[in-house]
Amino acid sequence: MNRLRFWCLTPAGALLGGLFLIPLGIIFAYSLLTRGPYGGVFSPLTWENYSRLADPLYAAILWRSLLYAVIVTAICLMLGFPLALFIARAGRRRNLYLSLVMVPFWSSFLVRTYAWMFLLRDTGLINSALLAAGVIREPLTLLYTPFAVILGLVYGYLPFMVLPVFATLERLDKSLIEASADLGATPGATLLHVIVPLSKPGILAGSILVFISSLGAYLTPDLLGGGKTIMIGNLVQNQFTTARDWPFGAALSLILMLVVMGLLVPLQRRGSEGLL
């Protein structure tokens, strides 16, 4: 029995070890090294890559990433909770409504981001329509703004909130809701005092997933944000490509990983519900 299990786990273990854990180890090592004159990495060991994070230029980017991630998580919660509630109460049509959330979610992140470029650009559909209707005379600057980035992130990660919240709401014992009404609670009071507290595990899971995804986002700020709304992900990419400062990029990546792992602890304790 153990031999079969060994052969089953070996490919997965080798893959994770060789292509996930070792690369992370390399990044950790790089983050402690010094940048070479033409890129590349050299000894001596140094903490300088981490202390550079305090540089106001980089601190502003880290701060902005955190702020955007918090805002996006809050908006996703406000938009996603009622949608999850709607799906959970839809009876036999649940599966249909759930698919309606999942299908755009799975069908190409790049295209979904591009769709917002198409809508938001100066000559995009929103501006054309507003100009044609005479509401505005000059096109509004929508693309390459913080607004566009937050909108794109909310659009991209809303299903991460809907799914886990739906999963807890679906499992909610109906008699608890009846009991609440029976004890005199109006629908609003039942929502506030029974449904929301009991869906906390889903809300927590969804919030962490949205937060992690937003914090590490690269494509959305890259395509919708332009140069002024760079987030950590873009800074990392920049260090590994144009700036050729791998040690600093590695330090940034590691910080990002630490935040992600720190947030995962409460999530894993409760099981990985609705992760997919």
């Binding site: 994770l16 690369p23 390399i26 990985s272």
Partner: peptide, 28 residues
Amino acid sequence: KRNSPWITTSLYLSLVTPEIVMGISLLA
């Protein structure tokens, strides 16, 4: 057959690792 905490945790972590981090670590 029997859980392996190491593999489970790594898999779980790989699911939520930001793509950009996974990309640059593979590149490295």
